[in-house]
Nucleic acid binder design. Structure first.
Length: 261
DNA sequence: ATGGTCGAGTATCGA
């Protein structure tokens, strides 16, 4: 397998972000791009914009909320919308799986949870448990596998500017972190931490109160890779430049490059 | 630029 560069980005509305995304694809030149929060229906997904740039695309859209997509210039096969664990659909567009250039790629937008103890928070925990069952259904830990997206969980206190000031405790609660660790326990490595064991690197900053410039952020966008891939990890990047300028998403893209194998 | 979120969609909710 040749070198492959894979990116994940919560764009917070694909239509609102399309100019920034098109610009960024030309700069970052990823082979595979996973998008979350497209907030558009399949009928308004801008396929041609990506074709023009050399990318095939698949989209699992819903309309007003959620929505996930995979763009690839190394092929897209074996596409699965949502959970493949044999259970019922959860009714929201938060998970999409495809094989791109020999890598089994799954991208996810994990429910936010709202508040610790909220009905939606319990749903979030169940959703993360189900995510591991989904991996069992679509891949083997011995394969080249990437699971990436907006997990809405900061794995560790290193991953937040202030653990006491996050969302009334969501994103940092022990229960959420355990649920995320259970997903990693399937056989995945948090690629950013391979290269940056202790750095305070965030991927999301609130639009409000100048949070980005104050470094009030969290690392909730992750790119997890199976061992066969993580052994070939060459570099990773949180592209903070994409969080600056005109009409940015509140998330920065994260990129990981894997060498030939 | 003396305030200070954004997006969808058009009132208000979700993040």
């Amino acid at each position: 397998m040749p070198t492959v560069r894979i990116a994940t980005w919560n764009v917070n509305s694909l239509h609102a972000r399309l100019p920034r995304l098109e610009e960024w694809l030309g700069i970052a030149r990823p082979d595979v791009v996973c998008l979350q929060e497209t907030k558009c229906g399949d009928d308004s997904f801008p396929t041609m914009a990506f074709t023009t740039l050399g990318y095939e695309a698949v989209h699992h859209g819903e309309g007003r909320w959620n929505g996930v997509a995979i763009l690839s210039r190394v092929g897209i096969d074996a596409v699965v919308d949502g959970f493949a664990d044999g259970g019922e659909s959860d009714g929201e567009a938060r998970l999409l799986t495809a094989t791109c250039g020999g890598v089994r790629v799954a991208t996810t937008y994990v429910p936010n949870g709202r508040e610790v103890g909220h009905e939606q928070w319990h749903r979030k925990l169940g959703w993360l448990r189900r995510l591991r069952d989904h991996l069992d259904a679509v891949a083997s830990p011995d394969d080249d596998v990437v699971l990436c997206g907006d997990f809405n969980v900061a794995p560790d206190d290193r991953d937040v500017w202030d653990p006491q000031r996050c969302h009334g405790g969501t994103h940092v609660s022990p229960e959420e972190r355990e649920a995320l660790a259970h997903v990693l326990g399937w056989g995945l490595v948090d690629t950013l931490r391979v290269r940056h064991p202790d750095d305070a690197l965030y991927t999301w900053w609130d639009y409000q109160a100048g949070a980005f410039h104050k470094h009030w952020g969290m690392r909730i966008d992750l790119l997890l890779a199976s061992r066969s891939l993580s052994d070939r990890l060459e570099w990773v990047l949180v592209d903070r430049n994409a969080r600056k300028g005109t009409k940015p998403s509140d998330h920065a893209p994260f990129v990981a490059q894997f060498g030939p194998g």
